[in-house]
Design a protein around this nucleic acid. Structure first.
Length: 192
DNA sequence: GCAAGGATATCG
DNA sequence: GATATCCTTGCA
């Protein structure tokens, strides 16, 4: 179990940064489906990214889960991260995988899932998880409401990360939301 | 500052 | 079929 601390919104066919910008394709099909479904895609050939479909059927939109704070099952998340690192280095030196495993073992729990690729790695997700209903209370991966005492938190809105043409008005929209100052938010401390 | 790495969308 | 690109990460 983990608490979502950072998200990015991708909304509509006109969102030039969204996978839906070219219309419906085999990869992004689920974005046009029912809200609450998972969309997991592979980026840069190495990292899977978890998204939650948000708009009604026919209206493509999703939230990219950029970072979570691990709460329960930290040991499993750590071993999932290490396993993902090992498979990523399978073609390369096993020594590299070993040193990365050691680095992950030393990571504080707060930094185990501080990035979109790291969220999927910590939960052991890949593209095969696309289409799972995250609102199903018995789904193996699901969303749950935050405890009521956490209902009011300070939220920071900044431009979305890693998008080419960051100067354009439609890209500069502050659609990246994160908990102010939270240690599990991605990026250097100054940007949290 | 950049390399790693594979799927994808677009072009020929 | 070839290739430029990509909602990233960690190390030089």
């Amino acid at each position: 179990m983990a608490r979502i601390v950072e998200l990015e919104a991708y909304i509509g066919r006109d969102d030039r940064a969204s996978h839906a910008r070219f219309g419906e394709t085999a990869r992004n099909r689920v974005m046009f489906g029912s809200p609450g479904l998972a969309y997991v895609y592979l980026v840069y050939g190495m990292y899977d990214c978890l998204n939650v479909v948000t708009e009604p059927e026919g209206s493509p939109a999703a939230l990219l889960v950029r970072a979570v704070q691990p709460l329960e099952g930290v040991a499993l998340m750590r071993s999932d991260r290490i396993a993902q690192a090992a498979s990523r280095h399978r073609a390369r030196a096993a020594e590299r995988a070993a040193t990365e495993a050691e680095r992950i073992r030393r990571l504080p729990a707060d930094r185990l899932a501080s990035g979109p690729g790291l969220v999927a790695a910590a939960f052991g997700l890949d593209t095969g998880w696309t289409g799972i209903d995250l609102c199903d209370p018995v789904a193996p991966l699901r969303l749950e409401p935050a405890p009521t005492d956490e209902a009011r938190v300070a939220i920071l809105a900044t431009p979305r990360i890693g998008i080419p043409g960051a100067g354009q008005p439609w890209i500069a929209l502050p659609w990246r939301l994160s908990l102010v100052g939270h240690p599990s938010v991605s990026g250097p401390i100054a940007t949290r």
